[in-house]
């Protein structure tokens, strides 16, 4: 066969592969959103779920998802930034740094179900808390921390070396330089990474099954006392998140309208991830523009 014919055939195969991939992925997004929009309305988002009757909503699950995400970020962001600073600024090439890098790699590659099992062992059983939001958030912290550490390390490393030298040459200490020059300059990168990872945390289910549990107590949204079991803010209560809910209604649900609830919940989940994604891109570019001084 002549090489030009082979080239043509090969090119068409690559185009075909890309088309199959893009087609599958678009079909998938389209399917979710199309079926979801048929279900989602204000009532669906704001009514309680039902365990056996039709017409349940996802109010508590939606709240739980955001609340667990918030608590997780409360732990992950400071720790992740600290770890990122360490890796970018303090880690000297050598055995200790290699070891920490290995630890990050281990944490990043653990299957989320394994993280969930660890959470069950330590945050649920050993502490005696039982299934709680706090246990779930701590498990998700383990799951998310390596991502944030990498994001922060990359963002800090990508700050031009000249800026750091300028500050050091003015007799400012390394730590103060980190706080006032490096972190602000790395902020857009960190923010983008944090929001993207928030999308991942938001959709995670396997790590939460054994830590935050499969149920939610009756929540009274007028009760803002974080120590009351019926208060949505209580971090020592079990909480079923949106993704866990999708799994639960599909595998053990006895409600007759499984399909509708799952359609709606999946679409809400996907839309949330889309929003996180777009928000990250948009905020990243806006802050970048503002900081680089172009008007």
């Amino acid at each position: 066969m002549n090489s030009r014919v082979t080239d043509k055939i090969a090119t068409s195969i690559f185009v075909l592969f890309a088309a199959i991939m893009a087609g599958t992925l678009f079909a998938l997004l389209g399917y979710i959103l199309y079926h979801g929009f048929a279900v989602i309305d204000l009532d669906f988002l704001t009514s309680n779920s039902s365990s056996f009757r039709e017409g349940g909503g996802i109010k508590n699950q939606l709240f739980n998802s955001f609340y667990v995400l918030f608590i997780t970020m409360l732990f992950t962001v400071p720790l992740g930034i600290g770890g990122g600073i360490y890796m970018a600024e303090y880690a000297k090439p050598g055995k200790v740094t290699d070891f920490i890098r290995t630890c990050i790699e281990v944490l990043a590659s653990l299957p989320s179900i394994v993280v969930g099992m660890f959470g069950l062992l330590v945050f649920v059983a050993w502490t005696g808390w039982g299934y709680t939001i706090l246990s779930g958030a701590l498990a998700l912290t383990v799951f998310n921390l390596p991502v944030i550490v990498r994001v922060c390390e990359d963002a800090i490393r990508s700050v031009p070396r000249e800026l750091k030298e300028a500050s050091l040459a003015l007799g400012v200490t390394h730590w103060h330089t980190i706080k006032t020059v490096l972190l602000p300059a790395a902020f857009p990168g960190i923010l983008t990474g944090v929001i993207l990872s928030a999308g991942r945390v938001f959709g995670e289910a396997a790590a939460l099954l054994f830590t935050a549990g499969l149920t939610t107590p009756n929540l009274d949204f007028t009760n803002w006392n974080p120590f009351n079991i019926h208060s949505p803010l209580n971090i020592f209560r079990p909480a079923e998140t949106l993704s866990v809910h999708i799994w639960k209604v599909n595998t053990q649900g006895i409600i007759p309208d499984v399909r509708e609830v799952a359609d709606g919940a999946s679409a809400v989940l996907v839309i949330s991830v889309l929003i996180f994604n777009l928000l990250a891109r948009w905020l990243g570019s806006v802050i970048h523009k503002r900081m680089s001084g172009s008007k």
Partner: peptide
């Protein structure tokens, strides 16, 4: 630099502890 270093080392420590704890406990 001391205070900063403590915070930063603490974060790095959490990563190490988490990885070791998961491996050992499981």
């Amino acid at each position: 630099e001391f205070r900063g270093k403590v915070i930063i080392l603490g974060s790095a420590g959490v990563i190490i502890i988490a990885a070791i704890a998961i491996t050992l406990f499981l």
